[in-house]
Design a protein around this nucleic acid. Structure first.
Lengths: 252, 252
DNA sequence: CGAATACTTGAGTGGGGTCAACGCAAGTGG
DNA sequence: CCACTTGCGTTGACCCCACTCAAGTATTCG
């Protein structure tokens, strides 16, 4: 049920088979979210941790006049409210981008596990640190990269993350992110996101339509996005690092 | 020696007197940094944690063509590399903005303390979570706020943080951040930072010259910056929350 | 008292924003 | 099976916020 969680944590922290099995068998309460439905709202005090099992979600903040800033994407395997039993009150909301299936895990269970299996606790902790690292990278994008580079970078990141939980098919993946979502994540307008995607398509780097992203030229997309996956802190030489399996068609 | 650390952690997590005293007496190795000197470089694997004792520093990332993005400011009391004994390799650099005094704490000491005093471990953990929360707020600023709001917001944040470690004098503080630094933090150009500061001065909200920031009208500055300190997760009703003491002539 | 370093100011420009249609596919319901 | 709606993507016209370039003027400091 939660095997996706095991797969994900295994990519960022080396866990033993026993630990992985434990994570796969976590007792969770399944909950289904409608597209655009909020899992948690700004100001809430959630009583459970949540792991995304299926579908995309995002963390976001609203600013006056209805403008939205997405501060991170949550893909299957991601954990939502680990922090909340320390911070208590949410400073942002979490919303589904499409229909989602999530698993609820009581804080008590999380606490028990991390106490009995400190290495799993470590993996949880590392997960929150990696999330912080990703958010530093986003900051850099929003602050100092052009629209073109910003979007290319974001696509690279999502691709690597999906790949690390086995959710890519070769060089393509299911990507249920609308251009409006993309604009809220990159701080651009929808119109400009649209034009920038056309540029990327025009250069034969990608194809993105109907929720499907196809990367035509990974190396050039990485260049375009000034993308270096080091900040994602994947365990070295794990198959997911930098999409290596995608390139083994016959390449050095 | 490290009383500033105790003061800071006490503002975000309620600690007992004994715990505070312990933090005040942490054995640290003092190190002095020259202005603009790097404490840690991108890619390093630091072997110690560091707490800032005096002076301002920042975390930053470089992007091609020498452009810099500051992803957070570090003020006295802040801890630098808590995460590094999990993430191992730095994905950003830390540099001094002015002459700084920092205290080095071996990872082993940190580990011992957190094991013996789990509440202090909690406080450390909360500290990293608050940092992540601040970085989400910065993301929101860079993505969806105008230059004017962005800078006002940043000034509010710095003011509250300085206040929480007792580094404000009434409604003013020592602020060794050049306009170039401000531009690297807000993703703006130096020229535009300059003009925006003039706007803020023109509206009698602040005065900022020669490393001294004076806030003339805190309420209006908060409005201008769309600033709500909730995201900083200070302990409720602590004297530092939202600069309350600054607005009451006397103090409890 | 030079020589940096930081701050200002002006002029011109462009990246990206806004506004407003329009196209198109996928419901939905009668 | 068709009219209506709703959500998403696309396009064109126009404009402004913030950038760049360039040349100043303080400050600070050895």
């Amino acid at each position: 049920m939660t095997s996706i969680l095991a797969r994900k944590l295994g990519q960022i922290f080396p866990l033993t088979d026993a630990e992985l099995r434990l994570l796969e068998q976590l007792p969770v309460t399944i909950k289904t979210l409608a597209p655009r439905e909020d899992l948690v709202k700004d100001g809430d005090r959630p009583a459970t941790c949540t792991v995304v099992l299926e579908g995309f979600a995002c963390r976001y903040k609203m600013v006056p006049e209805g403008r939205r800033q997405i501060v991170s994407f949550l893909i299957p395997g991601d954990i939502c409210d680990l922090q909340c039993f320390i911070l208590e009150k949410m400073d942002h909301a979490i919303g589904a981008l499409e229909a989602c299936k999530v698993g609820l895990i009581p804080h008590t269970v999380v606490r028990d596990i991390t106490e009995k299996y400190p290495r799993i606790g470590r993996a949880f902790w590392k997960d929150t640190l990696v999330e912080a690292a990703i958010s530093r990278e986003w900051l850099t994008s929003l602050g100092r990269r052009s629209a073109y580079v910003r979007i290319a970078h974001l696509l690279c990141e999502v691709m690597v993350r999906l790949n690390s939980v086995g959710l890519t098919q070769g060089r393509s993946c299911h990507l249920p992110i609308t251009q409006a979502d993309l604009s809220d994540a990159t701080g651009l307008s929808v119109v400009h996101v649209n034009r920038t995607l056309q540029q990327l398509r025009g250069q034969d780097l990608i194809d993105l339509k109907g929720n499907v992203l196809i990367v035509h030229d990974w190396e050039r997309l990485k260049e375009a996005g000034e993308f270096d996956p080091a900040y994602m802190h994947l365990v070295p030489d794990s198959p997911s690092e930098d999409l290596r399996p995608l390139r083994t068609g016959g390449e050095s």
